[in-house]
Design a protein around this nucleic acid. Sequence first.
DNA 1: ATAGGGTTAG
Length: 656
Amino acid sequence: MIRFVFLSSYNHRVVFASLIVVGCSKPVFFASVLKRVNPRPDAVGCLVQLKIHQGLESCSTMENLKQYHSQIIRLGLSDDNNAMGRVIKFCAISTHGDLGYALKVFSTLPQPDTFIYNTIFRGYLQVHLPKDCISFYLQMLHTSVPPNKFTFPPVIRAFTFDNAVEQGRQVHAQILKFGYHLDSFSQNNLIHMYVSFKRLEEARMVFDKMPQQNDVSWTTLISGYSQSGYIEDARKLFDLMPEKNPASWNAMIAAYVQSNCFHEAFLLFDQMQRSNRFKLDKFIAASMLSACTGLGALKQGEWIHDNIKKTGIEVDPKLAATIIDMYCKCGSVEKAFETFNELPSKGISSWNCMIGGFAMHGKGEEADELFKRMENESKTPPDYITFVNLLSACAHSGLVKEGHYYFQRMVEVHSISPGMEHYGCMVDLLGRAGMLNEAMKLINAMPMDPDARVMGALVGACKIHGNTELGEKIGKKAIELEPYNSGRYVLLANIYARASKWEDVANVRKLMNDRGVKKSRGFSLIEIGGVVNEFVAGGRSHPDSQEIYAKVKEMLACIRSIGYAPEAESVSHDISEEEEMEKALFYHSEKLAIAFGLLKSKAGETLRITKNLRVCKDCHEASKLISKYFGREIIVRDRSRFHHFKQGVCSCNDYW
DNA sequence: ATAGGGTTAG
C-alpha cells in the first residue's frame, strides 16, 4: 500500500512519477489521490503525460486517454490549458492519436494558449493538411495569442507544403517582427521553404543573415542547390562548410547521385573514407547503393551491402528497397531475390522493387508468382506502383492474358483506378504483341489525355511490327507532346529508316536540329576489376583504345564466320557506302565495351554492360553471336530492360 | 520542433 506522507511535500511530479513506477495504474485510484491533495494543474498534466507515456506501450491508448480526460474534467480542470494541452498533444501528434478528438477538445477551451495552438499546427502538418494549419495560424493571430519560437517551424512548413510563396514571405516578415530572427529553427525552416519554392537567392539571403549557421542550415542549402540543378554551387558550399557531419557528406553524395554524377559520388565517398572521420551510415549506404545502381556497378554494390551487414546497420524498409533495386539493376536478380527472401519484414517497396526487377529481366512468370505470394501471404496490400511493375512484367514477357486479368483485378479487387502508367503498360503489352488496333482502342478509351510516353509505347510497337503508317501518325503526335525529347524524333526516324524513306528521315533530323534538340549521346559502361570504364561511340579517349579497336575488328571477323551481317536498319540515315555504314555500326559504344571486356576478363567470365540508351538491332544481333562464338554470357542493361545473351540466344527472345 | 536515403510504363 502506498503511503500518502509524500504528498505534503508538494512535489507532485515526483510523487506521481513514483506512483507510476510502483505500478499503481488504475485511473480510479489516481482520481482519489487527486481529490485528496487538491493538486496543482501542472501536476495533473504531469500525471496525464506519464500515464499516456506508459500507455503508449499498450495498445488501447486513445481509450486510456479518454479515461484520463474524463477524470480531469471531473476534477474541474476542463478549462485548464496546462492539463488540456497535454491531452491535445497526445491526440494531435502521437501515432495512436486522433486529431479529430484533439480538435473537439480544442473547441471547448475558452482561451487556448500558444502551446496548444502550436500542437494543433503540428497535428495538421502530420496528416498533410497545410491549409487547416494555416487557418488556425490566422485564427491565432486574430485572437492575439502571441506566437513563440515553436510556432513558426510548423507554420513555415505548412506554407511550404501549400507552395504559397507570397504568404510564405509574409510569415517571414512576421518572424522578424516578433523578433525570432535569431532563432535557428525558424531560420532553418525559412531556408527550407525558399529552397522548396526554388527561390535560391532568398534562401541564401536567410542563410547569410543568420548570425550562426548550424549543420542544418548548411545541409538544407546544399541539398537545395542540388535539387534545383545547381550542383556546382552545392559543391562550393559544401567545400566551405567548416565542420562537416555525416548528414552533410551524404547530402553532397546524394546531390551527385541525383544529378547522375555517379563518378563524383564515388570520389567524394572515397574522400570521406580517407579522412577517416565518419563511418558508413544507413543514409550514406543508401546513396552509394544508388550510385552503384546508376553505373550498374555490381561489385561496388556488393561491397556496400557487405559493409551494411558487417557493421550491423539496420536494414529498414527503405534501405531494403535500395539494396534489392541495386541487385536487380546491376544484373543479379538472383542476389536480389535472396536478399528479398531473407528480409524479416517486407515493406511495400521491397515487394515492388522485386516485382519490378523480374519485369526488367523479362521474368514475367516469376513476377506473376511473386505477386500471388504478395496477395496471399503478405499483410501489405499491393499499391499503384505494384501494378505498374506487374503490368510491365507482363508486357516484357508477352503475357497478354495475364496483363488483362491484372488490369481488371487492380480495379475490382484492389480498388486502384488505372493511371497513365498503367495505360502505358497496357499499350506496350498489346502493341508488342502485335495487337496495334486494340492498343489504339485502349488509348481512345482512356479517361485522361494520353501523354508522350503512352504514345511512345505505341510508336515503339509500330516500329517492331513494321506499321509505318500508324507509326508515322502517332510518332508525330508523340513528338509534339514532348518536342524537347530527342528520343521521340529518333523513334520516328527509325520507323522511316526501316521503310527506307530516307527523305523523311532527313526531315525529322532537320526538324530536330531546327528546334535545337540534341540527340542524347549514347554510352556503355563495363566494370572490370572494380573500375567502371565508359565508352562512347567512336570514342578514342580510353588509354587502351588502340588495342580495343583491334579487338573489335577481330571480334566482328569471328562472328562473320558464323553468320553476322551488319544491319542497315540500325543506322538512322542513308549511307550508301557500305564501308561507311559499317564503320558507324562497328564503333557503337556497346561493341567497344564488349571488346574491352573480352580483352580484360578471364575466359568464360560473364560480361556486364550498362547502357544509357536502348540496344540497337545490330548490336543485339552481334551480342548474340559473340556470346556463342566466345562462350561468354553477356548481360546488358538497356534503358528499359535487361538482355542476357547466352549461346547465341537473348533472354528477351528478340522481343524488346 | 528543423537537414541526409527507396520503389513508377517507353
